[in-house]
């Protein structure tokens, strides 16, 4: 269904793309500038800001902690979310739509409110250490993604394939692990990556739940910016962009989202 597009529309498309990419290009360029403050255009070329990242302990530990939190929260969200979605799409549960809404509700509440609520109730209230609360926050952030994307995938997965497996002698549990999971593993990995990126870059929840003992990368960047205005921040941003880009590329390659997108497109057309 390839249609000839109007030139004005094409122009508009490229303009939007430029608008989106321009700030990123600026960040990349400034990260190589030799002046002590972020300026554009740059005067000389240097890699010293990249080297400087490693001499900032906050960035290094922040990266490690953020990475660990994102991996743990995304993993937990998938482990908890997958059986829930399977039950919702397969077991003919009454009020499945209502459950869907409940699971998706974290997206409706401003994240800053979630962060504050967790801080108030769990950290101040019952004196939990920061780390588990932080993971809980990021877990809550990720669950809606799991629910939404996995529901789309499982609704598209032909149920007669599962029935064929039951009749072949595999119980429902075995079928889930030997037939369903292998067939949705691409989608699961894609969801994991999306959750990871989302959690790794999250500020609103993270802001409430770190302290002297716990440094996360986004808050480390904010802190650094308060005292310095050199291109180290640009350099960090470039590395984060590369990391995100790499993951998106991986996700595309595994085709994990094609089914999900198909489903969402179909829904949109109806």
């Amino acid at each position: 269904m390839r249609q000839k597009k109007h030139w004005l529309l094409t122009l508009y498309g490229y303009l939007m793309l430029l608008l989106l990419l321009l700030p990123l290009v600026l960040v990349v360029v400034t990260s190589f500038g030799s002046q002590a403050a972020i300026t554009f255009p740059i005067k000389g070329f240097t890699l010293k800001w990249y080297a400087n990242i490693l001499s900032q302990p906050d960035f290094v530990t922040g990266f490690k902690t953020s990475f660990a939190v994102a991996v743990t929260a995304s993993f937990l969200a998938i482990v908890v979310g997958t059986p829930a979605v399977y039950a919702l799409t397969r077991c003919g549960i009454h009020h499945a739509n209502w459950f869907q809404t409940v699971f998706l509700s974290p997206t409706l509440i401003p994240e800053i409110v979630i962060g504050f609520a967790l801080f108030q109730s769990l950290v101040i209230g019952i004196k939990l250490p920061l780390m588990p609360v932080l993971i809980t926050g990021h877990f809550l952030l990720s669950v809606p993604y799991v629910i939404r994307m996995l529901t789309a995938r499982l609704l598209l997965f032909d149920q007669t394939i599962e029935e064929a497996s039951w009749l072949s002698g595999a119980s429902k549990i075995k079928t889930f692990f030997r037939v369903v999971i292998p067939n949705i593993s691409g989608t699961l990995l894609a969801i994991f990556i999306m959750c990871f990126i989302n959690s790794f870059n999250n500020i609103p929840i993270t802001l409430f739940l770190n302290g002297p003992s716990l440094t996360m990368l986004p808050t480390a960047i904010l802190n650094y910016l308060q005292n310095n205005y050199d291109p180290t921040v640009s350099a960090v941003s470039v590395i984060l962009m590369l990391l995100t880009g790499l993951m998106m590329w991986l996700m595309e390659r595994m085709n994990g989202l094609t089914h999900v997108n198909e489903h969402l497109n179909q829904k949109g057309q109806n």
Binding site: T160, A164, V179, N183
Partner: peptide, 9 residues
């Protein structure tokens, strides 16, 4: 089954 229902993986 009418639609074969083979295990795709």
């Amino acid at each position: 089954f009418q639609n074969y229902a083979l295990f795709p993986h």
